[in-house]
Structure formats: structure tokens, C-alpha cells
Design a protein around this nucleic acid. Sequence first.
DNA 1: TTATATTTGACAAATAATGTCAAATCATAA
DNA 2: TTATGATTTGACATTATTTGTCAAATATAA
Lengths: 105, 105
Amino acid sequence: MKESKTTGEILREEREKKGLLLRQVAAMLDIDTAILSKIERSERKATKEQIIKLAEILDLDKDNLLIQYLSEKILNEIKDEELGSKALKVAEQKMKYISKNKSGN
Amino acid sequence: MKESKTTGEILREEREKKGLLLRQVAAMLDIDTAILSKIERSERKATKEQIIKLAEILDLDKDNLLIQYLSEKILNEIKDEELGSKALKVAEQKMKYISKNKSGN
DNA sequence: TTATATTTGACAAATAATGTCAAATCATAA
DNA sequence: TTATGATTTGACATTATTTGTCAAATATAA
């Protein structure tokens, strides 16, 4: 019952569907093959720019991929924190408050 | 209609309530006064260790202060992101999934 | 004023993120 | 098998970010 894929898993799946090699995609990103290998196995994080390029290369929805990516960055921030779950809820509350008071109201 | 205080605002308020000087609290934290000044004005982030020490020094609830602090770290991660709000929601979903499958079930 | 507290900004040190490279491992076709 | 190409691993280099110091500027108040 696997609930959700990691960004890395998504990237690997799509790259393989397209029959592309790590070497080829890495070249398009202008990085070493080793890094892309690590990104796909969640051993390293991609940069935002790399995620955007990868969405283009692999025909993935850019916004969805970015949301995936950002949510992982958020979770990474609290993954070792006992209070992480509570902090996340508080962050959402604050976020709501911020949105409500955005410029334009 | 100020909804919530920043960690810095809380820290300054409590320090002043106790009649302590920046210099004094900074010394207890073993950092320069300048940094504490910046932390209280949200120009710099504290470290987790500093937050814990500050809770002790200022008699604040440690967990509450840490939750405040962590939620700010989360928001900081997405504050310039258009998709931040969506990413936050996805992070919560993933978090629920993770909790559900914690060791011990 | 003078004294003390705080703030500011330039800079230094420490840490973390991002990358390269070469060798090891893996998969598979000859 | 062995030979080839793909991927993985780990040591290391580079760069960016974080965390800190220091001294001068500014505020506060006696």
C-alpha cells in the first residue's frame, strides 16, 4: 500500500519510460551523471532549477513536480523533529493568516 | 488585528518582562549581543539549541517555543514560492501517511 | 553632556549544499 | 566467460549559506 512516490522515484520512472540514460539527462542538466543518479535515489536533493528543467525534459507537469519537490523540502525540515507535526499545523494556520492579508485586500 | 507574534517578538517581550539586557542574555547563550538583537528583530534565525536555552532562561514553555520556531522555519522555506501553500498541504498529507506507518504499528 | 543599551554593517569562520572524478559494481550481449 | 556500457559509490573540491565577531553608529535616559 505505497501511498506516494518520492520526487526521485517519479523522475526515474519517467526517464526510463522515455528510454533515456542518466548520462543523457545529466548532460541536458549540465551536471555529472553521479548527481542525477543520487537525485533519483533521494540521496541528494535537486535544485529548483533542475526540477524545472527535468519537468521539461520528461514532459511532466511543472507545477505538480514543484509541489512534490517543495513538500519534500518542508518535510526534510522537520523529519527528525518530535514536534514536526504540530509545527506543520501551526505553519498552515499562519499561512492562512498571511494569505488572508495579502496585498490586494 | 495582529494574529500571531514572531518568535523574536516573544523573546523580546519576555526578556523585557524579566528586566534582562540583551548583553546579559547573550552572555548566557554565549553569543554576541548583536546576534541576539537580530534574532529578536527576526533579522536572523536562532539555532535550535539557542531556542531551547532561551526557553529556560525566559521561563517559556519549551515545546511551544520550539513549535513556533519550527513553523517559522517551514514558512521560510516556502515564503517566496507561489506554490508554497499547496506544497504545505501536500506535506501534511505525507506527514499523516508517515505517522500512520510509524514503527510500532 | 556622559553613560549605557541597542542596532547596523563589514567582515571572518564554520557548516552545509552542490559538484567533479575515478573506481567499483551491475547488467547483459557476444 | 569476458567485454561493454550503465549506474552507483565514496573521496574530495568548490561554492553558497549560516553563524558569528567586532567596531562604529544610533538611541535612551540620567
